[in-house]
Each structure stands twice: as structure tokens, then as C-alpha cells.
């Protein structure tokens, strides 16, 4: 469902407000003047391939990376001036785990709470609650080293919640996890969303963006190339269905002229042809009617991957 954009609803102050936000590393332009607003309670995503500028943007929002140019306000504050005060109200789940391997799960949470000046007893109480939430209570006194990748991510999310943040920043929260671990994590994040926690996340998985984001921006080469809800982006930039054709090696090129006119739009990838149309089955029948015999024919719904392909001419994950 589409959330009201914070920019249009003047009475709802945006939690995060960016105009012309830019990040430069020497001569390299990582983030190239982007505009966005995140409203309270919203789940907002940055979708894009590696190197699109998502992590640089997240680090600026996290008030750990100075803004090169443009305006950025987080919770109404300027990260250049009020960095520590902003960080006090954020929860951060970084792309790379940085848990304290010398400490137990519970100690990790309590010590992290100490960085926010949370007293030991209160930190211990919250740690136990959060370990329950992260389904790690039975391991609370074990060393972090004994955890699987998915458990470490859940612990990192629990750690990010220790200061009861206004905004939770998640940088590629499920990258590198197996499908089961990803689903458990999504379930936990969905629970936070239900509680009204504002989530800001980056991902290069379209299924993750579709699961978790109310609204997202598609980034490519430091710029925002599209913005909207997952469904509205699909409706705007692609067709309802896609028919994927795989031809046996070496025969794809010869088949291409025959496919002309069968779909609204055709994308040719090195290993397959994507036919975009409202009715994928009709396309598949048309292909057979023209006496073409691909090795496999797959009819599926369009996803954000297709949106990305349409916008940039490239796949999200190469």
C-alpha cells in the first residue's frame, strides 16, 4: 500500500529529509544529489546493485559519514552538528557484522546499551526481552562465535533495538543468508514494522524490497532513477507478466526476428529472452504458433528486478 509522501503532507514532519544529498570520495561521486523523505512509521527502501551508492547514503543517514554537499536532516537535526544526538536515537544494522566476539550474546547487548548511557540493570532487562524477540534466549550466555550467520544478524538487529530507536537502519540485512534464515529475519523485521518502528533498508534483493518496503527508491550510479511503492513501480515500469524463454545454446539470435510483435516489450539477455506482456500464457502460445521451440518457457509475474532492468538496462545482481 502507498504511504502518503512526507513531502506532500506538510503536517507530518519527515524523520529523514534529503535534498541534493551528495557524497564524494576524492574524485569519485558515490551519491549524486539525491532527494527523498522518510515519514514516521514508514518502511523505506533503497534498491540497487552493488556500487549504486546505497551504503554511502545509509552511512550519511547514520551520521557517521560527513555529507559532501546538499541538505540532510535526521529527526530534524543536522548530522554535521548533532551527530551524537542523532545517533542516540538510531538503531544501526551494518552490512558487515561487528559483534563483539569476546563477549556473550547478553553482554553484547548490555555493553552496547552502555554506549547509550543505559544503566546496567535496565540494559540487562532490555537485553533479555530482545533476546526473546530475536529467538536467541536459549543462547544468551554463549559466545557470539558459536552463532550461525542468520543468528548473528538477528542478534545485530536486537542490539540495534537496545536504545528503543526512532529509526532502524538496515544495510543489506539478509545478504549472504540461506533462504530459511532470510525468512525468519523478514518475519522479525515485519514484527518491528507492525510495532510502528520506522525501517530504512538497502537491498539488492527485489523479493526483500517487496516483502518489507512500503515505498522505495531505485538507485543506480549514485542517482535515484525511480520512486514509489513496489506495486506502483511494477505497474508503471513493466507489464503484469513476463514470459522467459531459454533457447538451446547458439540458437537464440536466429529466433529473435521471429519473436517481434509477440509482446509489449522484449529484453534480450545473454542466456534468455524476457517477453513483457499482460498475458504471459498468450505470449507462450504465440511463440509455439510461430514454430519456435525454446528449451524452457516460464511464465511469471513481473518483479522489481524487471523494473530495474527496464530502468537501467542491467540486472540487479550480475
Amino acid at each position: 500500500m502507498a504511504q502518503p509522501s512526507a513531502a506532500s503532507a506538510a503536517d507530518v514532519p519527515s524523520l529523514i529529509h534529503a535534498r541534493g544529498l551528495t557524497k564524494r570520495f576524492g574524485s569519485f561521486l558515490a551519491v549524486d544529489g539525491i532527494d527523498f523523505d522518510v515519514a514516521p512509521g514508514e518502511s523505506f527502501g533503497f534498491l540497487g546493485p552493488n556500487g549504486a551508492g546505497k551504503t554511502s547514503t545509509m552511512r550519511m543517514i547514520g551520521a557517521v559519514s560527513p555529507v559532501s554537499a546538499g541538505t540532510l536532516r535526521i529527526l530534524g537535526m543536522d548530522p554535521g552538528r548533532d551527530g551524537a544526538r542523532i545517533r542516540a536515537r538510531l538503531g544501526v544494522v551494518p552490512q558487515q557484522d561487528n559483534l563483539d566476539v569476546d563477549l556473550t550474546l547478553r553482554e553484547n547487548l548490555i555493553v552496547y546499551g552502555r554506549y547509550f548511557d543505559i544503566p546496567w540493570a535496565e540494559g540487562a532487562r532490555r537485553a533479555d526481552e530482545l533476546l526473546d524477540f530475536a529467538q536467541l534466549a536459549d543462547r544468551r550466555d554463549q559466545q557470539v562465535e558459536t552463532l550461525s550467520g542468520g543468528m548473528k544478524r538477528r542478534l545485530t538487529i536486537a542490539r540495534a533495538m537496545i536504545n528503543q530507536p526512532d529509526v532502524l537502519l538496515l544495510d543489506e540485512p539478509t545478504t549472504g543468508l540461506d533462504p530459511q534464515a532470510r525468512h525468519i529475519l523478514w518475519d522479525r523485521l515485519y514484527g518491528l514494522k507492525q510495532r510502528g518502528v520506522t525501517l530504512v533498508l538497502t537491498t539488492h534483493y527485489m523479493d526483500e524490497a517487496q516483502q518489507l518496503c512500503d515505498r522505495l527508491v531505485v538507485m543506480d550510479k549514485g542517482r535515484i532513477v525511480a520512486e514509489g511503492s513496489p506495486n506502483s513501480l511494477i505497474a508503471e515500469y513493466t507489464t503484469r507478466e513476463v514470459t522467459e524463454l531459454r533457447f538451446s545454446v547458439g540458437t537464440q539470435d536466429a529466433a529473435l526476428p521471429t519473436l517481434e510483435g509477440l509482446a509489449d516489450r522484449i529484453e534480450v539477455l545473454p542466456d534468455r529472452v524476457l517477453m513483457y506482456a499482460e498475458d504471459g500464457e498468450a505470449v507462450a502460445e504465440g511463440v509455439h504458433a510461430r514454430d519456435l521451440h525454446p528449451e524452457t518457457v516460464l511464465v511469471r509475474r513481473s518483479t522489481l528486478e524487471d523494473v530495474f532492468l527496464r530502468l537501467t538496462g542491467r540486472s540487479l545482481i550480475d
Binding site: G62, V64, G83, A84, R85, R87, A88, L90, V92, P94, Q96, D97, N98, L99, D100, V101, Y112, Y115, F116, D117, R159, N163
Partner: peptide, 14 residues
């Protein structure tokens, strides 16, 4: 090795 400093600077610690 463990990047603990990065965990710290995400909080009010500088």
C-alpha cells in the same frame, strides 16, 4: 578483525 569500533561509532560514541 572484528570491526568493533564501527559498532561503537554508530552510537553516541565518537
Amino acid at each position: 578483525y572484528h570491526r568493533i569500533y564501527y559498532a561503537m561509532i554508530a552510537t553516541p560514541i565518537s
